[in-house]
Simulated scan of single mutants.
Amino acid sequence: MLLPRMKLAVIFDRAFHAMADMHWRMLAGLILFHAISSWLFLAIARETELHDPLTFFYWYATTAYTVGYGDISPQGVGGRLVTALWIFPGAIAAFTTVVAKVLAGIGDIWRIRRSGKGDYSKMTDTILLVGYHPVRTPKMVEELCAELNRSQTLVLLTRQAVADVDPRIRYVQTESLTSTTGLARAGAANASRILIYASTDADTLTATLAVSAMAPDAAHIVCFFDDADSARLLAQHCPRVEIVLSSAPEMLARAARDPGSSQVISALTSHLDDGATLFSLRWAGAGRSVGDLTQRLLHHRATLLALQPHGAETPRFNPSPETGVEDGDRLFYVSAARLSQPSLAGY
């Protein structure tokens, strides 16, 4: 007696897995066939109450969902036999198969993303982080998330396998930071901002060259170097990339000569504290004077630090009040929050 039961269980298990692996179109076709055949069988059994298509659909759906309100049911012996032998097994099996396929699909997507095999090439306005450092990368993520718009997504591209992925970022693993396939999956072609921070300057150099060839012209690319020679080499080939050089020796010397200066600079570069932060604003439209904008910034409890004219390589500190601010110029100011141009224009 036990052996036939085991064989029956194996048969049902194989049938269930076969249906779970079935293509959605094939599954939809089988469900449609079962529903139509069930309707025909009930019609032959003279179940007139279930003959109306909408009424039958309602009853068939509640039967498949295993809800069974009981407000409608077959009345004759033939209809009940059809329901017990054909409709119940088929409808419930179809419903459980659909649920299994949906849950399996969700699980597959979750596993793919957790393993770094996700594809975010169709996303737009993303912020892409290239390279991973176990200590510094999480800090960059915190800084970026402090001002992250709802429409923006953080994507991390790295060679390392990251076990504990921050839920706020999308994770892409690749064999090389210069891989066109990996950069494409990370959405480099549609990213609005790209940060490159690799383990070595050589990796940063090659990754930045690869990113620059794929990123859109409007994307702002920033990379970090310890060595000034590598930075100069990159600047010759990719002049639009903003290069951040390690300033640890200079900061150490400045802190020795001017105590507390390192704390001030650190506070200005971080947005995670309650103090003021350094921001920039690209001016667009009609020109204004530095003096006018300074007063407008003071109204918002902000201070103008520097002005970088459009096309200039370096900013000008403490510009005179008569200096004009034209379209494309960039303002650097210190404030507790980021300000928009409309807020300055309408103060």
Score class of each variant (00 low, 15 high):
P89F: 02
G90C: 03
G90S: 08
A91C: 01
A93R: 01
A94T: 00
T96K: 05
T96P: 00
T96I: 08
V98S: 02
V98T: 03
V99L: 10
A100I: 02
V102I: 15
G107Q: 09
G107C: 02
I109K: 15
W110R: 11
I112T: 15
I112S: 14
G116K: 10
G118T: 11
D119L: 07
M123A: 14
T126V: 05
L128K: 01
L129Q: 00
L129S: 01
Y132E: 06
Y132L: 03
Y132G: 02
H133A: 10
P134Y: 09
P138G: 10
K139T: 08
V141P: 05
E143D: 04
E143T: 04
L144C: 00
A146G: 13
E147C: 03
E147L: 10
T153M: 02
T153P: 01
L154G: 05
L157N: 09
L157F: 07
T158I: 05
V162E: 07
P167Q: 15
R168Q: 09
R168F: 09
I169N: 10
R170F: 06
Y171G: 06
Y171M: 10
Q173P: 04
T174M: 05
S176C: 08
L177P: 02
T178I: 06
S179T: 07
G182L: 06
G182T: 07
A184F: 14
R185V: 08
A186S: 06
A186M: 04
A188N: 05
A189H: 11
A189K: 04
A189I: 01
A189L: 05
A189N: 04
N190C: 09
A191R: 07
A191V: 10
S192K: 15
R193Y: 09
I194D: 00
I194W: 02
